[in-house]
Design a protein around this nucleic acid. Structure first.
Length: 804
DNA sequence: AGTCAGTCTCCTTCA
DNA sequence: GAGACTGACT
């Protein structure tokens, strides 16, 4: 290397260091390592997304310019002259020279970024738009979930797939329905083989890229052989309906790339740079997909944290991230261990808990930040006291103006824990939001309407046909449906074709009229669509022609919510039309299938957040509260017998602890009512793993005082905040006194009172209407239906209600 | 075909 | 303890 070249490289690197001056050393190294396989182990809160975004920006701006090999064979006369004039070139001087001849900048569409959630993909695109000051570049990179990327590939090569007509995606619910039908058809004993377990088995087979034939070959035990039979029929039923389940989307893409070498070469050449987020959550099929896509350029970067692998139960294999450097022996490994999120105390506690795992890459997070508050551990009598203490804590800290409600997150192991907490919060008027539960797209009415659209779009879809054929009621019962299906199978045609010609089949004579009427309606709607009817008008036509809307209207008050949801769905269609230049029904349906929820999680509301630890991954909160730290709950009961399961629970605990920025509160109880049973469990081993010097324990009140009714299941405590004067309607007068919160939420003696029918406003829940008022001592319990969040019960003196 | 009562199940979850 | 599901009855 000549003297000049050395000076050139030095100047070049100075430039890149300057561009990324805000990053730390390791982050910068990750951003600059653009060539070859790269594994980035990104600890919790270590700036993973920042690295990902900056690295993609670096690639698009400068290609492989950082690298020595990218020194031009001969520096141009211009550069040589520049060096001669300046002696040493500064960072600024080198930039214009760089782009011209040494770097090979990379077109954005040659970059592929794969994530697990739409939210993560969206965040990458948004942050890139900010870097490039506009959408154009950010929108042209291929960024998306595994499933959306695969659908994009599958769609472009549908002719090679062997599916005829329009593809349909079956969600977990549809798949289970089909599976139930298949198992019934094969006379499988439902006691011995639950749909749930068989669905899991097939899902795992697909994750391991075993098609029915390959799976059958592997099957030895009776159980596997039975599953093989089911899998075979299930898969052929999917094919008949032109349907893919979620696992198919990945598996069929891998098969396509393996089978069609020119397709593989096309994508592998196209994607010069590949980034995979949350690599610890990938399964075998996803691993294989990445390998195939990276097979030409081998510029594959994977980011993840083996300590945060918490999806083993859905097929993720930590081995992918643990073994990345043996899959790619030339891989560079960079660890991001500086944490920018949590206090030192929180971080040390998390380190101590995770250190007990054996299957992990050794690492230790560190931080520059201060020690911070000790971790508080509280022991309670039962889940009711636990919930009350949590409510008190939040109320107290908010009253001190230390935090707002939105700064608190209550993270639990199982959803069943949420109900007690929710009830307690509602009673004290403490604003909260629950994440999880029934999603918009999972609601029956939405699934029904989507099924109509799916069926019109793809009339071979049997599962959706069965869903809508008698909804609203058309007097087409199970017997008729079974007859139609049998005829379709015999003649190798679709059920819909049978229905169109129902009058020609003797077996259907009785139902022929209703069947043809249904078929005509579908054909009419199909014609509207083909005639270019806009999607929103079309959706409305479907709702009217099918009688679905009328059915809900007729039900009146009982189905008011559903009717509203349907109208919201139509708004969703309009939104899709506004966001897409060429809106199509197929496009809309695919988006609905792959985008779980239009984030209905209102981040702006000032309310405490309730969610499972799993759904909290990737989010941070100033104060994290973890209830239920008991053996058998967290770690869960299965973990007590299975060491691998225990390691997963430990990782889950690590994720939970590292969500906290400033303060951490851990709760455990002596006895707990869960799933209708009262249990007594010792405190979680994870509590014991935290070094004592980081902990402040809060003494339990003497149990005699706290539990006058003894066994929690013996008598249910009712209302604790029943009145401000102690004369309430609680079962025991002393209960009321003793259970009064240590620091009560600010009760308002002057609280305005409302009557049923009044419109009221709540700081967190928004506006609503009072449904009923029950006097409780000197206070009132309101049942209010809020416009946005539904019905809540609130105590008048605690809830900050105003007239709307 | 629809309703009601008894039965069963229950971890975590994204596409 | 709650919700989903099943099966018998009308």
């Amino acid at each position: 290397m000549t003297e000049l070249e050395n000076r050139y490289i030095k100047a070049k690197r100075a430039l890149f260091d300057k561009v990324h001056a805000s990053l730390n050393e390791m982050q910068r190294r990750a951003v600059h390592t653009t060539e070859g396989p790269l594994l980035v182990i990104a600890g919790a809160g270590s700036g993973k997304t920042t690295v990902l975004v900056n690295r993609i920006a670096q690639i698009i701006r400068y290609g492989n310019a950082y690298y020595d090999e990218s020194v031009p064979a001969r520096l141009s006369a211009e550069t040589v002259a520049a060096f001669e004039a300046a002696g040493e070139l500064s960072a600024e001087d080198i930039e214009p020279l760089l782009g011209e001849f040494s770097a090979s900048p990379c077109a954005p569409w040659n970059v592929l970024a794969i994530t697990f959630t739409n939210k993560a993909a969206k965040e990458i695109v948004e942050r890139l738009s900010r870097v490039f000051d506009g959408d154009d570049i950010a929108k042209s990179i291929w960024a998306g979930t595994f499933h959306s990327i695969c659908m994009r590939i599958l769609r472009s090569h549908s002719e090679k797939l062997g599916y005829g007509g329009t593809l349909t995606i079956y969600d977990a619910d549809d798949s289970k329905k089909l599976l139930t039908a298949v198992m019934k058809e094969l006379n499988i004993d439902e006691k011995q083989f639950t749909v749930r377990s068989v669905a899991g088995e097939i899902s795992r087979a697909k994750e391991r890229l075993l098609d029915p034939e390959a799976y059958t070959e592997e099957a030895t035990a009776f159980r596997e052989k039975t599953c093989a039979k089911i899998y075979k029929l299930y898969q052929s039923r999917l094919n008949e309906s032109n349907a893919l389940d979620f696992d198919d989307i990945i598996m069929q893409t891998v098969f396509l790339l393996r089978r069609e070498d020119e397709v593989r070469r096309y994508y592998a050449n196209k994607f010069k740079y590949i980034c995979v987020d949350e690599y610890q959550d990938t399964n075998h099929a996803q691993f294989e997909l990445c390998s195939l896509l990276a097979s030409e350029w081998r510029n594959i970067m994977v980011v993840g944290d083996d300590d945060q692998s918490i999806y083993r139960f859905r097929g993720a294999t930590v081995e992918n991230i643990l073994g990345f450097d043996s899959t790619y022996p030339d891989a560079k490994v960079i660890k991001l261990e500086q944490n920018y999120r949590s206090s030192a105390v929180i971080l040390n506690a998390a380190n101590a808990v995770i250190a007990k795992n054996t299957k992990r890459r050794p690492k230790r997070l560190w931080t520059d930040s201060e020690d911070g508050e000790n971790i508080k551990i509280e022991e309670c009598e039962d889940q009711n006291e636990e919930a009350r203490r949590i409510a008190d804590l939040i109320t107290r800290l908010v009253a001190k103006n230390q935090y707002s409600y939105r700064d608190f997150a209550i993270l639990y192991r199982v959803n069943a824990q949420s109900s007690t907490i929710e009830r307690t919060f509602a009673k004290s008027g403490l604003p909260y939001r629950i994440y999880g539960g029934v999603r918009f797209g999972d609601r029956k009415e939405i699934k029904d309407v989507v099924a109509y659209l799916q069926f019109i779009n793809n009339p071979s879809d049997r599962v959706r046909l069965k869903r809508i054929i008698n909804e609203p009621k058309r007097k087409i019962g199970d017997t008729t449906i079974a007859a139609v299906e049998a005829i379709a199978d015999e003649n190798g045609i679709t059920m819909f074709e049978v229905m169109c010609n129902a009058d020609k089949y003797v077996a259907l004579s009785r139902a022929a009229k209703t069947l043809t009427a249904f078929a005509e309606m579908i054909n009419k709607l199909r014609a509207m669509l083909d005639g270019g009817c806009p999607l929103d008008a079309f959706t409305n036509a479907v709702l009217d022609e099918s009688g679905y809307r009328q059915m809900l209207k007729d039900a009146g008050e009982a189905e008011k919510d559903r009717l509203e949801n349907i109208e919201e769905f139509v708004s969703g269609v309009i939104e899709y039309m506004n966001n897409n230049e060429e809106p199509t029904l197929t496009g809309f349906l695919e988006e609905t299938a792959l985008v779980a929820d239009v984030d209905r999680f209102d981040e702006s509301a000032d309310a405490a957040v309730l969610m499972t630890i799993h759904s909290a991954k990737g989010i941070e909160f100033p104060v994290v509260i973890i209830p239920g730290l008991e053996e058998g709950i967290f770690p869960g009961s299965q973990a007590l017998i299975d060491p691998a399961e225990l390691e997963e629970e430990r990782r889950l605990a690590y994720v939970a602890l590292t969500r906290a920025k400033k303060e951490l509160y851990l709760y455990h109880t002596d006895c707990r009512l869960l799933y209708g049973r009262t249990m007594r469990n010792p405190a979680s081993r994870f509590i014991g793993d935290i070094p004592e010097e980081l902990v402040t324990r809060k003494e339990k009140k003497k149990s005699r005082e706290y539990s006058p009714w003894g066994n929690a299941s013996a008598e249910k405590p009712r209302v604790y905040f029943s009145s401000t004067d102690g004369q309430g309607s609680a079962p025991h007068a002393d209960v009321l006194t003793i259970n009064r919160p240590v620091a009560k939420p600010a009760a308002r003696k002057d609280a305005p009172s409302f009557a049923a029918g009044d419109r009221v406003k709540h700081p967190a829940f928004g506006e609503g209407e009072v449904l009923s008022v029950k006097p409780m001592g000197s206070d009132k319990l309101y049942e209010i239906i809020f416009d946005r969040v539904g019905t809540k019960k609130l105590m008048g003196s605690y809830a900050k209600l105003t007239k709307a």
